[in-house]
Design a protein around this nucleic acid. Structure first.
Lengths: 210, 210
DNA sequence: AATTAACTTGACCATTGGGTCAACTTGGCT
DNA sequence: AGCCAAGTTGACCCAATGGTCAAGTTAATT
């Protein structure tokens, strides 16, 4: 790769990192090129598709933060505290970084590292959920798919409120957490759990991914 | 008004009613004209703006259903049952009718009847909430603004899942309701309640209204 | 310094959305 | 029947956005 191409790729990665973090993974590619001070033709040239760019730019940053939250949650002595910490922290990450929220939606099948990452986060969530259920504090009818929907919805709420009400989502989460304790459960749930396939499709429409 | 204009207005109202109900209040005006079998120029001619059309088409249908749900909720002997019924039913309406969901977002300031309607729904919600709080079953820190955010988020979830998982939102609501009972409350909420102004802005961004 | 392959550019294509308006068509009155 | 205002039409404008490519530029090698 020629030196100028390398330089441009760097500028594009930097611009993309900024814009992804500010406005999510769907920012117009032309705008990324604009901020990088480069023609959009060059962007297509060097990366080919949005997903390649995402994969190069977003994966590492997101991975560290997600793994760390999961690790800390599993390290809590109290399983419920770990679970509550996990929910709150992931929602906080989503609120402050729309790119990370989009990563968790798992809607970029072409971005391999991203999907790996999303899968790892999903596994961690399952472990955290099951641990809390084993200790009897988290209601047994709550599933990883329920969590995914929650994350998806809160991500939108947090993004919508970023300017006007940046912490509004915290109240919603607090209400929800109180309803997730075993002793809060009142009735059997009205419908059965969703399947991973359903989660995939719903989050797709929720985030407007084609 | 000339007879052919009257006829076209009728066709446009009918097409708009269909499309609003299927896909929400933001459907392209040109598509409404297309379905009505009329040029989009005529639509602009007869209605001038999207909001005029909305006001003529959506208000009455939505009003009846909203009022009825509120009335029934307030008529329940058990205040909690009324509250739970209200939440579930409004979410169900939003799930089956995106237009109604958009009405509740209160984001069409130019549509007077719609805004009146939205205000009336909001008043009813307040009464239902306060009644349940007076009987001690609904936690006292839950506000009408919290309810508005809930409705906004569930509306999106329900719309996103309309095809793939049409009832997925019911589980989320069930968890939330369990967390809204007085005895479920564990800690003080992490942040204070939102203001109506904040609700307005957040729902605007949530629904993508400019 | 000359050559050439790699790279960049911006004009161009298409699509989708809101919105306008001159030119045509037609309802309804005399 | 004939006229004209009322009404309709679709071509046209704009701004975004995704995407392609011929022509021009430049880095690196000989």
């Amino acid at each position: 790769m020629r030196a100028d191409a390398e330089r441009n790729a760097g500028k594009l990665r930097a611009a993309a990192a900024e814009l992804f973090q500010e406005r999510g993974l769907q920012v117009p590619l032309k705008e990324i090129a604009r901020r990088a001070g480069v023609s959009h033709g060059t962007l297509y040239n060097l990366f080919g598709s949005r997903e390649t760019l995402i994969d190069e730019v977003v994966a590492d940053l997101a991975a560290d933060r997600l793994d760390e939250v999961a690790k800390y949650a599993l390290a809590c002595e109290d399983a419920w505290d770990g679970f509550a910490y996990y929910i709150e922290k992931i929602c906080e990450l989503q609120a402050t970084d729309p790119a990370l929220a989009d990563v968790l939606s798992g809607r970029y099948p072409g971005a391999e590292r991203l999907m790996t990452l999303c899968g790892r986060a999903s596994d961690a969530a399952t472990r955290i959920i099951e641990r809390a259920q084993r200790t009897g504090t988290l209601r047994p009818d709550f599933t990883g798919e329920d969590l995914a929907f929650t994350f998806g919805a809160v991500a939108l709420l947090a993004r919508a409120g970023a300017d006007a009400a940046p912490d509004a989502w915290r109240r919603s989460i607090a209400f929800l957490l109180d309803g997730l304790r075993t002793e809060a459960a009142r009735h059997p749930l009205p419908v059965g759990p969703a399947t991973p396939q359903q989660v995939y499709e719903v989050l797709g429409r929720l985030t407007g991914t084609p």
